[in-house]
Design a protein around this nucleic acid. Structure first.
Lengths: 160, 160
DNA sequence: CTTGACTCTTTAGTTGCTACAGGGTTTCTA
DNA sequence: TAGAAACCCTGTAGCAACTAAAGAGTCAAG
């Protein structure tokens, strides 16, 4: 099948499929005379696997690990279990962070019940207060389920 | 004070400060003869405000709205309340999504209790199964507290 | 006067795609 | 059989909110 059919079959966008190929998650396929990619059932299954993992919010790096195991079926799958445990840990941590965030936001919201002039708005005044670092999760603000991986990397000591 | 001192005073990175200036969140400052930016107390307070908002996971666009109100103290702050309510809604929605995700992941994890060969790993086999779309949140996977704004935009019908 | 710490601008990288430009190919229809 | 519509190709740029690094200038201390 051609890329558009694979896209329809798996509910994926065509550009995403080409992106996965560039990223090495899908193998390079053979081509028709007109340079069109052609896919078989195995490709569709592999892509479904990837999309399923993505729907569980795994990163492409995590998915790469899982694909390595799928490609080597005699390997011991202990690492798969570990990866999933770690991923669950990420998600649980994020939920905790967001719950703390929700509490803070609700507390903030309570500071201004009725609309008045901005100079006396309890919300704006509270947000202007200094030294609010000691919240709960010192790590900072929250992005994906894969919290701080990028930031951590950047915190690599560069001062000598 | 110079940019490095401001950075230290507010716990912000120097590059981030310059980035905020480019983005219009901080005003362009006056400069020394040597073309160094110089900041005063007002800048430090504004930057603290921004960082405080960011620690509450607001987007820069949301913060821009709040800053508009801080800069116009006679305006009615009703929109501030609305913005915060909406933000709280985002966060609550994300928590719900992540909880559902956590349940799915734990269910998946239960499928492989002991490490064995990958071909018989319940996790890998389940992930390979087709048609897993009907999860719980049909929107797809989860990114920030500001869920799908980008994706939504891209779903703009382009077919005529 | 030189070393080192600081600052400047500009550019590219991060993640996981998405969208576009500017082509070529295939397929359908008149 | 021509021409249009629908598909496909590569390559590049954009999103958010920064971070990092290159290459150069400025300033304070020893």
């Amino acid at each position: 099948m051609k890329i558009g059919e694979l896209a329809k079959a798996t509910g994926t966008q065509v550009e995403t499929i080409r992106y996965y190929e560039r990223e090495g998650l899908l193998p390079e396929t053979s081509r028709t005379d007109g340079n069109y990619r052609i896919y078989g059932e195995a490709h569709a299954q592999r892509l479904s696997f990837i999309r399923h993992c993505r729907s569980l919010d795994m990163t492409l790096d995590e998915i790469r690990v899982l694909l390595r195991f799928k490609d080597a079926p005699t390997e011991n799958c202990g690492e798969v279990n570990a990866l999933l445990d770690e991923h669950i840990g990420h998600v649980a941590a994020r939920i905790r962070e967001l719950r703390s965030l929700e509490r803070q936001l609700k507390g903030l919201r309570d500071l201004c019940q009725e609309a008045r002039d901005a100079a006396h708005c309890g919300i704006l005044n509270e947000l202007a207060r200094q030294g609010s670092e000691g919240g709960s999760s010192a790590a900072g603000h929250v992005h994906g389920a894969h919290g701080r991986s990028v930031e951590r990397k950047s915190i690599n000591d560069k001062r000598k």
